[in-house]
Write a protein that binds this DNA or RNA. Structure first.
Length: 764
DNA sequence: GAGTTTGAAACT
DNA sequence: CAGTTTCAAACTC
């Protein structure tokens, strides 16, 4: 992976997004959160991972030196406590427990995970310059509210690494270890394979959620198949993050370790890398990284190879593919079979999103770009610089990589898969990337697995890196070196990859997609499943005069390309990328925060969410959707300039409206439930009435109740009725006689059916 | 579905 | 910064 120049980092934002938590609900069994050690800031939780450092060039072919925990996260090790745990179903769970603050995310050589409010930032800037950023939305504790980590009432923040592949055996985890136990790694840890490498520390720090709504749990799911042989192969190719799960407070969970490979330049051609582009999330979301490595149940080393280079929040999450033992051998010629890059695009403001990460066939690296002041992180896609320099040199040193930040960037044209979100079908576009020297091309009907990126250099955009539209992904443009970017909304990246998903799903070796989809349907907070939230169709715009290049257009305002909209003369697409970029710049010139979410966190003591600018309603009373506050289901605040506002807490009008809305919603739910039930009953009925198999079935052949049989039965009943009438029988007696006849008819039918069935059984 | 209302965005 | 115009969504009929 190439290195982002330090000077660039200095101008990039350290804030990724200002949204709600990605995932706030965890229904999966997890280890109990370890109690925070004494002295821990009760308002925060943290998890630190001990990572192996990048492998130097000399280490690629030689055994790595003994483990050497080199860096610990600022903020005090004593605050570490949250472990990774690996559940029985291959789920690596990183519980957030104790915490510290003041983490310097830009400390080179210090990968770290920190949480700021609802924002969980996992930043790894190794010596190789490879940053890892995991960002979760803010969830700042309310003033005066203290939630103690380890408190039974507080659910743990979690990172979850799930291996999907049907493995029955857990691999020993190597690599995840809290700092407090770092010293144990080299001496007592059985996962000695990791001892050959230096250790890096990753800290995950998150303030404990203290909202009145109750503790929230952030769950980050990374699904990966376990590397078949884990560490043994990783030592030569990629740095391995090693560690061990702390058993603090979780005696039932045996300490396990996980090896997380760290993608570096040295492995850029042979070590898979995953990327995730994530748009700001306003509501709980889950991110799942699907491992494409085939499971290796027989692996002697219970090791999870988890390449990690992740950026959350409208950005790129780069995750290195697990390096299989064989493929990770020093001879990188065998590494071509490794699916390298995964990209996840989680887009959409204000909606829960669930995206999956899929491997790319190519091996582009990811450059994490942090823009100061921006809520977004940007990632530049780069391939290994030159084949001779990195691809074939099995041991490029990390330092050398970091010292070459300005390598020419070339988008790898090899087939690769990128983001594969669960998106509404209507948004699906299949795109076939063109060669690098060509412009972007969208081919809706083809399914080649190449990613096309707009090749347009964006000199006019670069000065405004801090305010690119949500979901924008900066990718390297061919032939322009580091200064070339292509701007893609994450949503579009998502669209680009849809075809890959299909192909992926059809591959036996990537059967994990089923699991992902299953997870995607897991309910969040018991209200809305991820699937529902992500598959909710984006409202199409109807722009006619703005060309969808002004903020009037919701698509454009949300940083999305128009897709299946009703707009006319739309320029909000790749075909008009240059115009679009100009429009973006124009908007940013007018308002540098034009693409930032309007609904953000309010001042201390105020509601968690409020309109950033406030509304200016005059006639609606702020009780119609004309009002942006009301539309966002938030109260008007002091910064609103509305007239006759009725959108405040005690407003009787608002309460009435809310009640009506709730009632309507209940009715809709009831109707939906009724429809579902009815549909189920009909389906069941159809199943029942489906002619049973003549042989072997437990049911009688209902087909015996044919029209003729029914008519004959009716004749019999009528005959009984006539006889009763002729004999002047009382009505009650007549009815009884008719019913008895009906019973006899039924018995005959059943008997005949049973006999036929029996005969069939004999014949069969 | 057409027409009206509304308020944000854009413009002056 | 204020006033006006433009625009598209929300709303009504």
């Amino acid at each position: 992976m190439d290195v982002v120049p330090s000077e660039l980092n200095s101008i990039l934002p350290d804030e990724i997004m200002d949204t709600e938590a990605i995932v706030m609900e965890d229904s999966l069994p997890v280890a109990s959160p370890a109690p925070a050690p004494s002295g821990v800031d009760a308002t925060e939780t943290s998890t630190q991972l001990l990572l192996t450092p990048s492998v130097s060039s000399s280490q690629c072919h030689t055994p790595a030196p003994a483990p050497k925990p080199t860096t610990l996260v600022a903020g005090g090790l004593q605050k570490l406590s949250a472990p990774f745990t690996l559940s029985a179903n291959h789920q690596l769970i990183l519980n957030k427990v104790g915490s510290s603050s003041g983490v310097d995310a830009k400390s080179h050589g210090t990968p770290l995970l920190k949480h700021e409010g609802q924002k969980l930032v996992v930043t790894t800037i190794s010596k190789g310059g490879q940053p890892i950023v995991l960002t979760l939305p803010h969830t700042a504790a309310k003033p005066g509210t203290v939630v103690r980590t380890g408190d039974a009432t507080v659910q743990p923040q979690q990172f979850k690494v799930v291996a999907i592949g049907g493995r029955t055996e857990l691999k020993p985890v190597v690599g995840v270890q809290t700092v407090s136990t770092a010293s144990q790694l080299g001496s007592s840890s059985p996962q000695t394979a990791s001892q050959n490498q230096q250790l890096k520390t990753v800290q995950i720090t998150k303030k404990t959620v203290a909202s009145t709504a109750g503790p929230m749990v952030t769950k980050f799911i990374i699904t990966k198949a376990l590397s078949s042989k884990g560490l043994s192969s990783q030592t030569s190719v990629s740095p391995v993050l090693t560690g061990r799960v702390l058993g603090q407070g979780t005696p039932v969970t045996p300490p396990r370790t996980i090896a997380i490979a760290d993608t570096l330049n040295s492995a850029s051609q042979s070590v898979p890398t995953s990327k995730v582009a994530i748009s700001p999330l306003m509501s709980p979301s889950k991110l799942t990284v699907v491992s494409m490595a085939s499971p290796s149940p027989g692996s002697p080393q219970k090791t999870v190879s988890l390449p990690l280079s992740v950026a959350l929040g409208q950005q790129i999450l780069a995750v290195q593919q697990p390096t299989s033992p064989a493929k990770a051998a020093p001879n990188q010629s065998t590494s071509q079979t490794v699916k390298p890059v995964q990209t996840v695009a989680v887009g959409g403001v204000g909606t829960s999103q669930f995206k999956t990460i899929f491997p790319l066939a190519a091996t582009p690296s990811v450059q994490q770009i942090q823009v100061p002041g921006s809520r977004f992180h940007y990632v530049r896609l780069v391939t290994a610089t030159t084949a001779s320099g990195t691809a074939h040199n099995s041991s490029p040193s990390i330092n050398s990589a970091s010292s070459q930040p300005a390598k020419p960037l070339v988008v790898n044209t090899a087939p690769m898969r990128m983001s594969v979100p669960i998106v509404p079908a209507q948004t699906v576009k299949q795109v076939v990337p063109k060669p690098l020297n060509s412009t972007a091309q969208v081919v809706p009907t083809q399914t080649q697995q190449r990613l096309i990126m707009p090749a347009t250099p964006l000199p006019q955009i670069q000065p405004n890196l801090t305010n690119l539209p949500p979901g924008t992904v900066l990718t390297s443009a061919p032939g322009v070196g580091n200064v070339g970017y292509a701007v893609l909304p994450a949503q579009y990246v998502t669209q680009l990859q849809q075809s890959s998903f299909v192909t992926l799903a059809s591959s036996a070796s990537y059967s994990t997609t089923t699991g992902i989809q299953t997870q995607a349907r897991m309910p969040l907070n018991g209200t809305l499943s991820v699937s529902e939230s992500t598959t909710r169709p984006r409202k199409p715009c109807n722009c006619t005069k703005s060309q969808c290049l002004k903020l009037y257009c919701d698509c454009f305002a949300n940083g999305e390309f128009c897709s299946n909209c009703n707009c006319t003369n739309c320029f909000n697409n790749l075909e008009h990328e240059s115009e679009r970029l100009k429009a973006i710049k124009a908007c940013l010139d007018r308002n540098p925060e034009a693409f930032k979410p309007k609904i953000g966190k309010g001042k201390e003591g105020e509601s968690d969410r409020r309109h950033s600018k406030g509304c200016n309603c005059k006639r609606s009373g702020c009780l119609k959707n004309y009002c942006e506050c009301y539309e966002a289901k938030i109260m008007c605040s002091s910064i609103c300039k509305c007239v006759g506002c009725k959108n405040f807490e005690e407003s009787p009008e608002r309460k009435t409206l809310m009640h009506l809305a709730d009632a309507a919603e209940v009715r809709v739910q009831q109707q939906t439930a009724a429809k579902t039930k009815l549909s189920s009953q009909i389906s069941d009925l159809l199943t029942r009435t489906t002619p049973a198999l003549p042989c072997g079935g437990g049911r009688l052949p209902y087909t015996f109740v044919t029209k003729e049989v029914a008519e004959a039965t009716c004749d019999c009943l009528m005959e009984q009725a006539e006889q009763a009438e002729l004999s002047s029988q009382p009505q009650a007696v007549a009815e009884r006689v008719i019913l008895e006849e009906f019973g006899r008819c039924l018995m005959r039918i059943i008997s005949s059916a049973g006999k036929a069935k029996m005969d069939c059984s004999i014949n069969c």
